[in-house]
């Protein structure tokens, strides 16, 4: 089978990586590592099976391994950033970039699930296989992620993040 099939999935891998890690360059590094791994391990892909799901599984594994090795220190750094979430002048109106920041407040596990469901529009079954966790775990992470996002985005009162001028 032709390895170049991988190429057409790059935009979607980039979209997911960007949402997952936030920073554009860190995200593209994650995509690059994923692509190289996929390229080298392509013989492991079963032709006819969902290539996109296979690539997402690889990206998940690369992401988890790298997070474990603390290469994604950006996440820690994000917690210390003062410029978070809501600009005072915005009032109740949230900007999309605020949503990006709020997303960082979720644990990586919750973020993965909510992004795979909301943005990548995978079924819960596919998410379960991609992340290699039981479907019950997918559902509980999804519930917690959505509830947390609702709190954070909901009203300024529950916004635990600093307001900057």
């Amino acid at each position: 089978m032709d390895r170049r099939l991988i190429i057409e999935h790059i935009p979607r891998l980039r979209r997911y990586a960007r949402a997952l890690v936030g920073d554009r360059y860190v995200a593209d590094d994650l995509v690059q590592d994923t692509l190289e791994r996929a390229w080298n391990k392509f013989y492991l892909w079963r032709p006819g099976s969902d290539l996109r799901a296979w690539l997402f599984t690889i990206m998940h594994n690369v992401f988890v391994n790298q997070a474990r090795r603390r290469r994604y220190e950006i996440e820690q750094a994000m917690d210390d950033l003062p410029a978070v979430a809501v600009r005072a002048t915005q009032g109740e109106h949230l900007e999309l970039e605020d949503v990006d920041r709020v997303l960082r407040a979720l644990s990586a596990e919750q973020r993965e699930v909510v992004l795979l469901v909301a943005v990548e529009q995978l079924t819960y079954e596919q998410v379960s296989r991609t992340l290699d966790v039981p479907i019950g775990t997918v559902m509980s992470r999804l519930s917690r992620a959505r509830e947390r996002l609702r709190q954070l985005l909901g009203g300024q009162a529950v916004m635990p993040l600093k307001v900057v001028k």
Partner: peptide
């Protein structure tokens, strides 16, 4: 609220595709 989250996340990250 959950449906709004889906919509916001999509409009935030879909431009990466282009």
């Amino acid at each position: 609220a959950y449906a709004d989250q889906n919509a916001m996340l999509r409009s935030l990250y879909n431009p990466v595709l282009d």
